[in-house]
Design a protein around this nucleic acid. Structure first.
Length: 231
DNA sequence: TACCAGGTCCTCG
DNA sequence: CGAGGACATGGT
């Protein structure tokens, strides 16, 4: 069995389903990870927003911003919020001026090009959707793939800093974003379930064990197939 | 105190 | 292309 598949099986067995992406249930204030059948337009906005806010930022800080936004009714009508108001609400997520600008750009794009209908963009064919997203300021490859996978639910593998670090430590040669993405997509079943769980599991093991400094190799579920801990 | 966190843009060789 | 800096808050 190839190593990529093996890693998935080990992580899934160890941690179970992660049920990404978290969204805020009705009458609650904080995002939760739970299985969802079909996403509402509101949930899609929450996911897109989270994908932008979490750029190089801990989810904890993003969560504070999401709570602010939700409390203010942002996800019910994103079009009624100006830049200053968004800046104030997303402040805890860091890089808040930049992120507020990216978010506002995205909102204006949906307003003008998709008649205020986010679903109209997300329903585009996967590659078309990806190129549309990448054209926007503030949407790079990871944010685009996160939106395609978790908001549009189309199988586009998400590569992030954890993915790179874990592959490196596993001794798998990695180059650029797209090479890594294609490697995963080639070796996995192309469906939402596998892609979404795999990425979430990599984040999980990256946060808990395969940390940048002071990794917890001996306790890591990947230890026995990873040479990194042996120094 | 310094470093880290679910990246992206811009500038410069 | 790819390296290097800017962007900013909150936790350890």
């Amino acid at each position: 069995m190839n190593k990529i598949l093996k890693v998935y099986k080990i992580l899934f067995k160890e941690f179970g389903p992660q049920n990404w992406w978290p969204t805020t249930p009705k009458n609650k204030s904080r995002p939760e990870y739970r299985r969802k059948s079909n996403l509402s337009e509101k949930e899609k906005w929450e996911i897109v927003t989270g994908a932008i806010l979490t750029q190089n930022t801990s989810w904890k800080n993003v969560e504070s911003a999401i709570i602010n936004l939700n409390k203010a009714g942002f996800f019910d009508n994103v079009f009624s919020f100006n830049l200053q108001k968004i800046e104030r609400l997303v402040k805890p997520s860091g890089f808040y001026r930049q992120k507020a600008r990216y978010l506002k750009n995205f909102i204006d794009f949906i307003k003008k090009k998709h008649k205020k209908n986010l679903g109209s963009l997300l329903n585009l064919e996967k590659e078309k959707l990806r190129s549309e997203l990448l054209r926007l300021k503030g949407i790079g490859p990871e944010t685009a793939d996160s939106i395609i996978l978790y908001a549009a639910r189309k199988p586009s593998f998400v590569v992030d800093a954890y993915t790179m670090r874990i592959l490196n430590r596993l001794g798998i040669d990695v180059s650029g974003y797209n090479d890594v993405k294609l490697m995963f997509e080639k070796k996995l079943k192309k469906n939402f379930k596998v892609f979404s769980e795999y990425h979430a599991l990599l984040v999980k093991v990256g946060k808990s064990y395969c940390k940048k400094t002071k990794p917890l190799c001996p306790k890591c579920p990947l230890f026995r197939i990873c040479g990194y801990g042996i120094s």
